[in-house]
Amino acid sequence: MHGTSRWFPVIRSEEIVPRHIAFVQLLDEEIVLWRADDGALNAWENRCPHRGIRLSIGTHAGSEIVCRYHGWRFASGSGSCTLIPAHPSQVPPKAARVRSYQIRERYGFAWIALGDVEGEPSLPELDGLPHLTLRSMTFAAAAADVAATLASEPGIVVHDPYRAVWERMGDAAPMLLLLQPESSAMTTLHAVAGNDLTGAGRLAFLRAHNAWCKEIRPRIVSEESRSAQASR
């Protein structure tokens, strides 16, 4: 699977709440996201370097994550082990370090790049506009299958395999639809609109988008069934 050299949104920033370990997946990599008490955001491989236990079942101790299994503690920023409870006076080895990923916060999302990437996350259509992020929705389908369904919707233009723009009639601001490939069979659709609705108007907008996501769900079909349809 390609896509390691680009930024993907993986979660709305505001869903990475204090003292919570958020858990996402990108291109088959399980990733935990957590915000230290000083505000620093971390994106780590979901794996303790000691015995491989998922850190998503660990605890958030403010500036460290504590592994559930043997209590090893890993520091915000470096991912380095700061304490091995079984050997409290020993300096933890340098190799005891969680793998971390590049992370940015822009347009109301946390963005991750798994590999080398040029530039910053960019949504030029929204520059100079406010950002209203909407509820993200996960589909049991490949990104290409979700993109094909988006392309069949009136008003939606798919720009690349993971990004579409929705110019909505009667709506001055565009909406960006961003695909996060979790695996070859699972995709999360994020959405951000260039408006600053508030109150009842905002809630109606959020509800309408949520309803639309549920409405398109049954229309998302695999590439095999699309080509079978086309050759009929």
Binding site: E15, R19, F23, V24, S136, M186
Partner: peptide, 12 residues
Amino acid sequence: LRTYPAIRRWTD
């Protein structure tokens, strides 16, 4: 539960 982020926050 990974794909149910609001549920994971509520269980916390």
